[in-house]
C-alpha cells in the first residue's frame, strides 16, 4: 500500500514541515494539522500484486526502494510517498520525534560545526562541499528497564594521627551490603543495520519532551526505514549500555569510606516496556580531497558526530603552542616567586 497526502486546496503532494510541525503544501503553502488532516485527501492505493512493487500515484513510475525503506520520494516526480504496509502491524512505530531542524538550518549548523573544527584542514573548515543531505528517520528501540541489584563489599575507613614520635594508622573494616531497585526509562538503541552504533550513540541525548505518538504524516518528505533487529536482539546492547550507569549509582550509595572492594555484585535488568520509535537524523555526505566523509546530525538538537579529517600541521601547531605558552607562564610565575628565570 502506498500513501500520499494530497493538498485539499490544489492537490499537490504535501510533506511534513519541521518548523510548524504541520503538513505543508509546497505549491500553495497550505498548512494542515496532522491530527485533523481530512481522511478524504489521504490517497491510499493497494497494488494488486503488492508483494514487492510500489507505484507512484502521480506518474505511475515504479518506486525503487530497499527492503527496509518505509518513506521515500518518487525518483521521477519527487512526490513524498510512504510505504504503508511497512509501517503497520508489527512494524508500526509507537513513537516518533519529529524533525525540528529544517534542511537549511541543518546546512547552517553543519557549516558552523566545520568552522569550529580546530584540528581539521583549512579546506575542510569552509564547509562548502556538502554533496548530499538526507533527512532520515532512524528506527530505535526505547527500553524501560526495571532491575534489582544486590551488592556486598568490604570497605575501610583509615585514620592517621601522631602521638609523641609515633604515627598511628587506624584502619576500620566494615561489611557493607546494599539491595536496590533500579529503573531506567527510554534507553535507546538503534535498530538499523546500516547505521554505525557508535555514531548513533554519540547523537544522544534526544529531548523526550517532544516524543509524540506515531503518525504517518510526520514521515512525509523524509526517508525512513524499518527496523532490522527486533527488541529481543538488541536488549543485550542496551544492557551493556546501562551497566556503567548502574555501577556509578551503586558507587554513589556507598559513601564515606576510604576504600571499597566489592566481594559480590549481582545485577538483574529486565525490560518492562519497549517502544518502537523513529528518531530524526540528518545524514551529511561531504566530499573532501576525493574522499567522502559521512556525518550524522541529531535532527532535534543539531549535534554533529562523525570522524572529520585531521590536519597533522594543526595538531603540531596546537601542541607546540600550548606547550610553549604553558612553559612561558610557569617561567614567569617562577620568576615572580623566585626572582630567577633559569
Amino acid at each position: 500500500m502506498v500513501i500520499q497526502y494530497k493538498c485539499p486546496n490544489c492537490g499537490a503532494d504535501m510533506s511534513f514541515d519541521s518548523e510548524s510541525g504541520h503538513l505543508s503544501c509546497p505549491s500553495c503553502g497550505r498548512q494542515d494539522d496532522i491530527e485533523t488532516f481530512p481522511e478524504d485527501n489521504i490517497l491510499r492505493k493497494f497494488d494488486p500484486g503488492e508483494a514487492k512493487e510500489y507505484h507512484c500515484e502521480n506518474c505511475g513510475a515504479i518506486i525503487l526502494t530497499e527492503a527496509e525503506t518505509t518513506a521515500t520520494h518518487c525518483s521521477f516526480c519527487g512526490a513524498a510517498v510512504l510505504l504503508a504496509d511497512r509501517l503497520t502491524g508489527d512494524l508500526a512505530p509507537a513513537k516518533v520525534i519529529p524533525f525540528t531542524i529544517s534542511k537549511e538550518e541543518a546546512v547552517a549548523a553543519f557549516r558552523k560545526w566545520t568552522k569550529n573544527g580546530r584540528l581539521t584542514p583549512r579546506g575542510f573548515t569552509s564547509g562548502d562541499r556538502i554533496k548530499k543531505m538526507t533527512g532520515m528517520y532512524v528506527p530505535f528501540w526505547l527500553y524501560d528497564i526495571d532491575g534489582k541489584a544486590d551488592v556486598a563489599a568490604l570497605a575501610t575507613r583509615v585514620r592517621s594521627y601522631t602521638r609523641g614520635d609515633t604515627i598511628y594508622t587506624e584502619t576500620d573494616f566494615y561489611d557493607v551490603r546494599r539491595e536496590m531497585d533500579l529503573s531506567y526509562l527510554k534507553v535507546p538503541a538503534d535498530a538499523s543495520e546500516k547505521m554505525d552504533d557508535e555514531l548513533m550513540d554519540k547523537l544522544e541525548p534526544y529531548n523526550y519532551q517532544e516524543l509524540k505518538d506515531f503518525r504517518m504524516p510526520y514521515l512525509s518528505g523524509y526517508l525512513a526505514e524499518k527496523y532490522d533487529y527486533d527488541d529481543e536482539a538488541l536488549f543485550s546492547r542496551v544492557e551493556s549500555k546501562i551497566v556503567p550507569y548502574i555501577d556509578s549509582y551503586i558507587g554513589s550509595t556507598i559513601s564515606g569510606y576510604s576504600t571499597v572492594s566489592y566481594t559480590n555484585k549481582q545485577i538483574q535488568a529486565n525490560k518492562k516496556n519497549v517502544y518502537y520509535t523513529l528518531f530524526p537524523v540528518w545524514m551529511v555526505y561531504y566530499d573532501f580531497e576525493n574522499k567522502e566523509h559521512t556525518f550524522a546530525m541529531n535532527g532535534q538538537t543539531g549535534k554533529v558526530v562523525g570522524k572529520p579529517p585531521i590536519s597533522l600541521f594543526k595538531v603540531a601547531a596546537w601542541f607546540t603552542g600550548i606547550a610553549a605558552s604553558a612553559f612561558a607562564v610557569m617561567k614567569v610565575i617562577s620568576f615572580a616567586v623566585g626572582g630567577v628565570f633559569w
Binding site: 614520635d165 561489611d175 557493607v176 531497585d181
Partner: peptide
Amino acid sequence: NTRVTSKLDQFRNKTISRRKV
C-alpha cells in the same frame, strides 16, 4: 523508582599500625 531497599554497614574489625616519625 530507583531506591536502596536495604542497607547494612556492619563494623567488623580494626587494625592499628605504628611507625616512628
